[in-house]
Design a protein around this nucleic acid. Sequence first.
DNA 1: TTGATTGTCTAGCGATGCTAGAATCGAGTC
DNA 2: GACTCGATTCTAGCATCGCTAGACAATCAA
Lengths: 192, 192
Amino acid sequence: MSVQERKERERASRERLIVATARELAEQQGWDAVTTRRLAERIEYSQPVLYSHFRGKREIIGAVALEGAAEMAAALRAATRAANGPHARVTALARAYLDFAARNPAVYDAMFQLDGGLAFAAEDTPAPLKDGFAALLESLGEVAGDGVHPGLFTEVFWAALHGLATLTRAGRLPPTEAERRVDLLVDRLAII
Amino acid sequence: MSVQERKERERASRERLIVATARELAEQQGWDAVTTRRLAERIEYSQPVLYSHFRGKREIIGAVALEGAAEMAAALRAATRAANGPHARVTALARAYLDFAARNPAVYDAMFQLDGGLAFAAEDTPAPLKDGFAALLESLGEVAGDGVHPGLFTEVFWAALHGLATLTRAGRLPPTEAERRVDLLVDRLAII
DNA sequence: TTGATTGTCTAGCGATGCTAGAATCGAGTC
DNA sequence: GACTCGATTCTAGCATCGCTAGACAATCAA
């Protein structure tokens, strides 16, 4: 039995290697550069090995997205934990969100721009994604204001952050005033 | 001279056909289905003809984006013109924006998600894009509030709309509560 | 009618995601 | 320790992609 267990461990390890390598390559040279051939070469296996772990490229993107969602949730919680009071918490949250998106553009793309074959806002939504939304909800729920559904408020706030993140990175918004945009957003949307 | 003029007319006409066909195909089957071969077949010319009008596929996407930007600007102005008072105007603007994005997903993608090789927020930004932002600014500038730069406010409001549009269409936000999200956004961000 | 220019097409390049079938490896048995 | 057989991995190839070179045809001035 131990032989089989070792094989499973090795297999799991190789799968992590694939995901980590895909992510690294995407952050270095963009997702366009993540081809199955290049990825296979980097992990020092042949192309078809990838397909014994994932259905295709899109599932690999999905795996990177899930990894990213878990990391982001942790980053958001760490940022809010260090802040005192609702207003400071929401500001810290917004900054942490945009910071994560800016520092991990490829991962952010995998999560929200590319098709990773993941279900959202549905019952079969993977746990890390639900948890990412939960991390937002924890801090945003307390500033939704009277009579406003916390989930709905979180959705709107999240959408605004997402818009700022994507438009900034795509060169649609000049990055110089990023800080002032965040302040404006928090001051107006959050009700302390 | 008249012969040459006729030729130029025909050439311009064919160029419009290419852009219109690309847009139609993208709306019908998504941008992935817009291959140079399929596009060439639909316009009943060979593939290389496309390259006598555009540098490549990305320039075709850019052309669709410019067309879309002009349309969107017109749609936004039409919507705001029919509304009375700043609050009603902004609500109408937001609804028109999200409506345009929902009705023309492929065009919206060409404008904001895909790489059409267009410059944004720069000096060489094409006129239709500048005008699209101007259309937003016209109505949003009057509700920015005291001491807040109208341009900055417009950017934030636009980012929020963009986030709602993309997240909704990507299945990240359930479409059922769309209306309530718009109301919340307008009520909080706009200062009447 | 001829010659040159302009326009269009056929054919093909390298690269993509993905897969079938051959080849190899290694675990368990004698 | 040699052998068998199933699991694993690889080689080779398919269809399709964006794009382009060079052959071909249409059109114009002389």
